[in-house]
Design a binder for these strands. Structure first.
Lengths: 149, 149
DNA sequence: TATTGTTATACTCTATAACTATA
DNA sequence: TATAGTTATAGAGTATAACAATA
């Protein structure tokens, strides 16, 4: 059972869900295919960006923000520590938890290398009109809100 | 080197590329996590949808439309054949190629099951306003165009 | 007991390299 | 030779189940 007939009312007959799914799947593939000199992966870049944006987090909080299960985040954090981009220190009041934080070189990496990593997307965005970018900006907000539920 | 300063001009300071990347990565994770009774995966559903939308295609054409390399598509097509959702017949004029086509049960699957597969996203979309859905519809078009380059 | 996190394991997704068959 | 496709292989991404440590 579909949840609504809104699709035929307001958008086109192909189905918004289908078109949005396909668009997201394809852009995701493109983004993952971008590789810079460094061997960091998109998943790791994403976690790094979140640490940059949100400040120190516990592994569980970081997993929740990224929308992955804790065991998946364990591996990402381990990789970031190996790169020297993140550090882990004990939680002040709860011995089970830890605090994961960007290191100095992690911060430098975010500022310098993440831009390079996103060069492909930046270039594509630069080719759009200002109106299209504004639209995508609002779409990103809506998509992120949906994904967070 | 960034490609333009448009970001600070028109959007917000966090960087449109970063925000769009994160949104797409997260929604992609959510979509892949949706599982119905059937054991078909999102990648297979995506190829099936494209076959439905475009009609019979060669493996190479299908790979190009999905934005994956031919060996990746080989596996997807093999899975769809095993499910009985697609058939392969010889190309009429070129013995190297083949024509991949939706079977009757593949067509039925697209019509019935793909909707169920997308139930989660449909529900999220139904919770938005008509304006937000209209915006996402246009965003999907732009994103798909960018990913296709 | 409940919660946080890790380890073990397995499966999906995807790519590159090497190969086969046909043009 | 060039092209279309497949096979072999490997790495990234992610999950669930089982476990350990702490609350």
């Amino acid at each position: 059972m579909r949840y609504a007939n809104y699709v035929t009312d307001t958008v086109d007959e192909q189905g918004l869900a289908s078109r949005l799914r396909l668009a997201v799947v394809r852009l995701n593939r493109r983004l993952r295919a971008q590789r810079t000199n460094s061997s960091i992966t998109l998943t790791q870049v994403s976690a790094l960006s979140t640490l940059h944006k949100c400040g120190p987090l516990t592994p569980g909080e970081l997993a929740a923000k990224e929308g992955v299960q804790p065991p998946s985040m364990t591996r990402v954090i381990a990789a970031l520590e190996e790169f020297g981009f993140a550090t882990r220190r004990p939680h002040p009041t709860d011995g089970r938890q830890a605090i994961v934080q960007l290191s100095d070189s992690g911060l430098a990496f975010v500022n310098e290398e993440v831009g390079a990593r996103e060069a492909w997307l930046d270039k594509r965005l630069a080719e759009l009109t200002a109106e299209e970018r504004e639209l995508l900006s609002r779409a990103a907000e809506i998509i992120d809100r949906m994904a967070g539920q």
